[in-house]
Design a protein around this nucleic acid. Sequence first.
DNA 1: GCCCTAATTGAGAAACTTTCTCAATTGTAT
DNA 2: ATACAATTGAGAAAGTTTCTCAATTAGGGC
Lengths: 146, 146
Amino acid sequence: MGKLFSINNYNEIKEIFHDKGLKCTPQRQAVLKVLQESKGYLSISKIHRNVKELLPGTGLATVYRSLETLIELNLVVKVHLEDGCHSYAVAPKGHRHPIVCTDCNRVIDYTECPMEDLSKKLTKDTGILIQNHFLQLFGTCKQCQT
Amino acid sequence: MGKLFSINNYNEIKEIFHDKGLKCTPQRQAVLKVLQESKGYLSISKIHRNVKELLPGTGLATVYRSLETLIELNLVVKVHLEDGCHSYAVAPKGHRHPIVCTDCNRVIDYTECPMEDLSKKLTKDTGILIQNHFLQLFGTCKQCQT
DNA sequence: GCCCTAATTGAGAAACTTTCTCAATTGTAT
DNA sequence: ATACAATTGAGAAAGTTTCTCAATTAGGGC
Ligand SMILES: [Zn+2]
Ligand SMILES: [Zn+2]
Ligand SMILES: [Zn+2]
Ligand SMILES: [Zn+2]
């Protein structure tokens, strides 16, 4: 089927798949595109609904599988909400943290990681070897502060 | 039925319930006790299994309901894992962050919040009004570093 | 461009998780 | 002790995620 959508960085995306021996299928592209265009996190069912508009007949199982793949490739992140988990958003590049606007669901990319220094300090202080962390910020974005 | 378990701070707990007009039932006590004694996060099914040892016949729905209540009372927190969410642990008092040992599942209480200064800085820098944050650390505890 | 092959997909079943309903029970205040 | 509203257990119902397998397809080699 080949290139279906005008994802701006299509060749880049294609390479990321091929580097890991994975196929660049229209379904995977569609899931990514839906998230790229939403500018916010989306639940599985919303992703499925939007994907079907681009690619009617796409199965729910495929959406689950695509998200799994996209997360492995670091193209997508899972967003954990206070209750009702498992929404998804496009991944910021590198190690960053998402700021979720609780009004419009938009996900804003936060580029500084306050944990780098802290992790070292903590390991030194407590003896616990910090290996990973999970940080999300919730707030109200500029546009929603009216 | 009244007091069933020797929760050290039984009267304190009872008051917390009564302050909100909630009953201090054996089921709610049992769920709390199970989490207090585990020193780590537990999945719903494990909580249910352990609760039934203290209180045979306790229904699964009641475990769900009790956890909901205990979270509202800030006695329990939901722990979000990288995949497979919705485990639970006793809440640290005040605003703190849990460090989860990825080897033994123990939850260690971390008392400093690195976000306080950061949130203000971020609001100033980006204009986004930071209202809340969700931080968990993952690592290896002393005992598991052998 | 046309095969070949392994990876991927769709559909539905199956497994699993969470919520709901309602009659029976029970904690608490009086 | 009694009354009443809150809570519970059981099972049904709803919702979510994973699995299975035959059919399809992307990508590499010719
Ligand atoms: Zn979560
Ligand atoms: Zn917003
Ligand atoms: Zn440990
Ligand atoms: Zn904090």
